[in-house]
């Protein structure tokens, strides 16, 4: 599904990713953990194609196609989804209108007609039930005045609607209370299939109690320095990141 080789990226001339390798296969869940400033969010943004970041080396392949030169919307059309750490507000644009536009623009890119309103409505109903979203919520302006939990739930709702091949959850657990965390994690678990893959970026182990990863990677100073199974996350929680840093010396 996703194959990243020797990826190097910088922002404003400052190198952040320094030769990163990772391979994610369909049906897998990968967790990327690491201390602040390790490059976790940069990795998410670089995969999604944010223009501020300059890729200076290496490759990003999605289903054997190099996507590193594609515009962000083209990557989205190819099935990349990023759940933002800080989702932006768009006043006056309802959640429904936004997701409708996103779906139809993606369909248009694939040469398909707009989704019929009836199908759209049915899909919205199903997915909002899945994520325990109140229908009234869907008519509100996108992220405007949303609580932290509502913002993240909205991100996962959009993911459910767009049905991406590769979903990257950037710090989706931050700002969530335990109930919201459970709802969001259950949503992600229900959306998981043998055909898609999920990358969970997080500081803490607690999200991984709900979304159990097949692999855990530790990102430090722009590189993956350690890879293990779910137990690695517990070990990190117990020992902290200094342990990894010491091991590297």
């Amino acid at each position: 599904m996703l194959k990243i080789e020797n990826l190097k990226a910088e922002i404003n001339g400052k190198a952040i990713l320094k030769g990163l390798n990772i391979e994610v296969k369909a049906g897998e869940v990968h967790a990327i953990m690491g201390p602040n400033g390790a490059g976790k969010s940069t990795l998410a943004n670089v995969i999604a194609g944010k223009e501020e970041y300059e890729v200076t080396g290496g490759s990003i392949e999605l289903n054997n196609e190099d996507i590193s030169e594609l515009a962000p919307e083209e990557r989205a059309h190819n099935g990349v989804f990023l759940s933002f750490q800080y989702p932006v507000e768009i006043p006056g644009v309802s959640v429904t209108n936004f997701i409708k536009t996103a779906i139809n623009e993606t369909r248009k890119a694939k040469g398909l007609e707009d989704m019929p309103a009836k199908d759209m409505l049915k899909m919205i109903r199903e997915k909002s039930e899945l994520l325990e979203i109140d229908r009234k919520f869907l008519s509100r302006s996108l992220n405007e005045g949303f609580s932290g939990g509502e913002k993240k739930r909205n991100e996962i709702f959009q993911m459910a609607m767009l049905e991406p091949k590769l979903a990257i959850l950037d710090e989706t657990d931050s700002g969530l209370d335990i109930d919201a965390l459970r709802i969001v994690a259950n949503g992600v678990n229900k959306l998981k299939s043998k055909d898609n893959a999920v990358i969970v970026i997080t500081h803490y182990q607690r999200l991984l109690d709900y979304i159990v990863p097949d692999f855990v990677h530790v990102l430090h100073d722009g590189k993956i320095v350690k890879t293990g199974d779910a137990s690695l996350a517990l070990e990190l929680e117990a020992k902290g990141y200094d342990w990894i840093k010491q091991e590297l010396v």
Binding site: G49, A71, R75, I90
Partner: peptide, 15 residues
């Protein structure tokens, strides 16, 4: 903002 545009782009909506 650039962030608003990137957010839309990421959802498949061109600029």
């Amino acid at each position: 903002g650039e962030d608003q545009l990137f957010y839309c782009n990421q959802r498949g909506i061109d600029t």
